[in-house]
Design a protein around this nucleic acid. Sequence first.
DNA 1: GCCAGATAAGTTGTGCACAATTGAATTGTG
DNA 2: CACAATTCAATTGTGCACAACTTATCTGGC
Lengths: 148, 148
Amino acid sequence: MTDDLVLRRQVCFALYAASRALTDVYRPILEEFGLTYPQYLVLLVLWERPDDAPTVSELGADLRLDSGTLSPLLKRLEGAGLVVRRRSARDERRVEVGLTEQGRALRQQVDEVPMQIARATGLGTADLIALRDTLTRVTDTIHRQKEQ
Amino acid sequence: MTDDLVLRRQVCFALYAASRALTDVYRPILEEFGLTYPQYLVLLVLWERPDDAPTVSELGADLRLDSGTLSPLLKRLEGAGLVVRRRSARDERRVEVGLTEQGRALRQQVDEVPMQIARATGLGTADLIALRDTLTRVTDTIHRQKEQ
DNA sequence: GCCAGATAAGTTGTGCACAATTGAATTGTG
DNA sequence: CACAATTCAATTGTGCACAACTTATCTGGC
């Protein structure tokens, strides 16, 4: 196996390992709020647009998750009293996901979570931005190829 | 609320999304060989040291996975005829994982997989090296903090 | 207005990840 | 030597991810 192949394998493993390591950092922090990381991501999307209640599909487009993942996840968030689901009046196929008062209030409580996470990475702002941009480029490249 | 809470600017989401996107690239390629990505990672470790059969713990140390993940995964690899598990003679608590002839032979067949993956990322060698180093640094920083 | 095709969300089944627990084997200490 | 503490793999239970399928609803062409 050439060095190039080893390198390429290492990049993929590095990505896989880093993603799991970061989730490990989130776990104890989010556990205080009774949240998992994917649940936290869903709430981030909802907090960004507090006025319109997106449908399951729209949430899925943002997070690149399908209903097979989101349906049970949203059911758990609803069970926790953070979210409400209601059939759209205009289109009964759609389910709109909105925040409850409790879900809205949670936003302030998790305010310092991103800073804690950034600190745990040990990277400065410039490195974080560079890393985010590279990763976003990789993700976009992959998704663009997939659509063709 | 601060920009930090904006999903797009989150390095963590970029990492999570990139990791899943890359697994999406692996899936159809590895499916031809009847492998999942974590199973492929286990085989990579075994191919790197074809002489000694590592224990479940040693595999776990390399991949940062515990027996709760590895035990059923190894059972499936054994069911596929790629791997054998045997209790250590010296220490009956340990289970050594070795390659079968079929498992050894698979190595040549998946030879060009890493190149296909690297192409899918759309990054050149320099970018791949930089990305790998940054990710490794993040992972190491997190794991070092965890041990303290 | 009717209906074939589409779209949306949910369900089922498989395979990770990981926490917590179990049970067997080994090690360290008195 | 005895035995408590440790180590190792496996198991159990929860929660993603994702493919494949189901059911309900909607849309466009006629």
